[in-house]
Amino acid sequence: MDLLFRDDAYLKSCEAAVVSAGPEGIRLDRTVFYPEGGGQPGDSGLLRLADGRALRIADTRKGDSHEDTLLIPAEGEALPDAGAKVTAELDWERRYKHMRMHTCLHLLCSLVQGDVTGGQVGADKSRLDFNLPDGSPDKAWLTDELNRLIREDHPVTPVWITDAELAAQPELVRTMSVKPPSGAGRVRLLKIPGVDLQPCGGTHVARTGEIGPVEVGKIENKGKQNRRINIRFAS
């Protein structure tokens, strides 16, 4: 399967053919739909069929391998036939919010010195959990620093390294709860020069300025050293 979102997160649609369709979901030969993973929700949208029908896609999930992606139709939708030609269309407004939020979480990670123990990307608010033995950071300072990095409009680019190169640089892995995918020979990193560099297979904006103003919400105590930092788009 050709994962088009991996090379161009700004593709909103693509022409594709149905490889298979069953209770587990719909497989296409190529897709712009990102499958749930790394804290980022799976994409939703439409499959437009040649007969004019529009099949609603409620979710996207990973299948049996790195390349296997399953589109989950909304309840009650009739499955397309194998071999059918379709146009896959993202719910772009939702996806773009995920891209902005996911990139902002990388900025947050660059400002907080502690292992990441969990996280979740959302369309309107997101969070990261950190192991912080020295206590919580200041909320006002974090908000100011996040918005400074956003205003500076840093470029955001994917880069690839080999599994061996990642194994030789374990400091690149900040997330304790999710291990970067390995075994395929190479691993994708997200690079914000001078700010952040770590493995990530999600979708992101091309420059930090696209994120827009944000604010830090609650900083919650989730354990002896665990702190949950919530962020949202500023109103």
Rank of each mutant, 00 (worst) to 15 (best):
D134Y: 10
I211E: 05
R95A: 01
D43V: 01
R232P: 03
V187M: 09
A54T: 12
D2A: 09
D138L: 10
G122K: 09
R95V: 01
T69P: 01
K222Y: 01
D91W: 00
G202W: 07
C109Q: 13
D138T: 04
D81F: 06
A9L: 03
L28S: 02
L46V: 06
G76T: 04
P133E: 12
A84Q: 13
K125L: 07
G201V: 04
G42A: 10
L55I: 12
D29S: 04
D163H: 10
P158G: 05
R100I: 05
V173N: 13
A78G: 04
S126I: 04
D29Q: 07
G194I: 03
N221V: 10
P181Q: 06
W160V: 09
P73R: 00
G183I: 08
R53V: 05
L197F: 01
R56M: 11
G194K: 00
L166V: 07
I192Q: 03
T162F: 12
F130G: 01
R6V: 06
R186I: 02
N147I: 11
G42I: 09
G223M: 07
R232T: 09
R6N: 07
P80I: 01
E145D: 04
H98F: 15
R95P: 00
G118M: 08
A17N: 13
E165N: 05
K12I: 00
G212N: 09
A74W: 02
K62Y: 09
G194S: 03
A58I: 11
E215F: 08
K12G: 01
I229Y: 06
T69F: 12
I26C: 02
I229E: 05
R151N: 10
L149H: 13
L166H: 10
P73L: 02
A234Y: 11
L46S: 10
P180H: 06
D115L: 12
V19K: 13
L197A: 00
A168L: 09
D59M: 13
S126D: 08
D81S: 13
R61E: 15
D7A: 13
K62G: 13
L55N: 03
A167Q: 15
E145G: 00
K62N: 11
G118R: 07
